[in-house]
Nucleic acid binder design. Structure first.
Length: 278
DNA sequence: TAACTTGTTTAAAC
DNA sequence: TGTTTAAACAAGTT
């Protein structure tokens, strides 16, 4: 499931594959992917030049002329450099004028068809993200201080794990990242966010940077290596996570069994020994 | 087969 | 009124 680090990789790939190139056409394979403006734009897209691509929260943004193509991947979406027609669940295809060493097409592949795409004016994009999409500030790559985390999340009584996933407070942290960050920071996921101390937020700040950087180092490549639905711990393949989907397995830090419970309908994984309340 | 998986939206409850 | 939780939704896997 693409969270902040995976979307960062896909945005970098998009940039590497498409920046500065001319579109020869856009195929909207599945019109349901269009959450605004995509179908209308696709008809006249040929001939336009692609600009830079970057990430905002869990969205990938690609400049095309004076507009931007915005992608959200939800659970199973990903962008790949592939021959059109070779993927099982293609939803959107960008065709590019041939250029040596770069792909002729970029495919938005999305097995469960839950992803979304928009085409919007480049102008006002920041406002659209912050106001319409209700996205808070980015937790990465800039180094955020303990004071920043406290300011964004320290007001609520909600459990800190639930608070971390609230996109309006901080944008880009999902269920996986939240569990991993709290394990790394040795914080009980059930603690009310407002009860965390400056020292706790300091560890959160460090843990976010650490988990994101580690994931980027591990997963960078042409195609996102999704954790499969067995949690990446299938025969012989080590789980890339410390606690996520590692229920019953030994905590990498103290060897106590990792536990699981539900918060706001979502599975939280943690080590009760390492992360016990203080 | 029914339960589980995701982020987001909407409705309901506290 | 503001905060918080629960349910619904998309669709495919186990």
């Amino acid at each position: 499931m693409p969270e902040l680090p995976e979307v960062e990789i896909m945005a970098r790939n998009l940039d590497r594959w498409t920046a500065g190139r001319v579109l020869t056409g856009v195929t909207v394979v599945d019109e349901r992917v269009d959450s605004g403006g995509v179908v209308a734009w696709s008809a006249g897209a040929a001939g336009q030049t692609v600009g830079r691509s970057w990430r905002r929260a869990k969205y990938a943004v690609t400049e095309v002329g004076s507009r931007v193509l915005v992608l959200h991947f939800r659970m199973t979406g990903k962008v790949v450099a592939a021959e059109p027609g070779t993927r099982k669940a293609e939803r959107l295809v960008l065709h590019l004028a041939t250029q040596a060493g770069r792909p002729d097409a970029v495919v938005f592949d999305d097995a469960r068809h839950l992803g979304n795409a928009w085409v919007r004016p480049r102008e006002g994009l920041d406002t659209w993200f912050s106001q319409d999409r209700k996205l808070g500030p980015e937790p990465w790559p800039m180094r955020r201080t303990a004071a920043f985390w406290h300011h964004q999340l320290g007001h609520t009584r909600r459990p800190v794990k639930v608070a971390l996933m609230h996109q309006e407070s901080i944008a880009g942290i999902g269920n996986i990242l939240a569990s991993e960050v709290l394990w790394r920071a040795r914080i009980d996921p059930k603690r009310p966010a407002r009860d965390l101390t400056t020292a706790d937020w300091e560890r959160v700040a460090e843990a976010v940077a650490g988990v994101v950087d580690d994931t980027l180092a591990r997963d960078s490549g042409d195609e996102i290596a999704y954790v499969n639905s067995r949690g990446g711990s299938t025969r012989g393949v080590a789980s890339p996570f410390s606690v996520y989907r590692c229920e019953g397995q030994p905590c990498p830090r103290c060897a106590a069994p990792v536990e699981r419970f539900k918060q706001s309908g979502r599975s939280t994984f943690w080590c009760a020994t390492c992360q016990g309340s203080t």
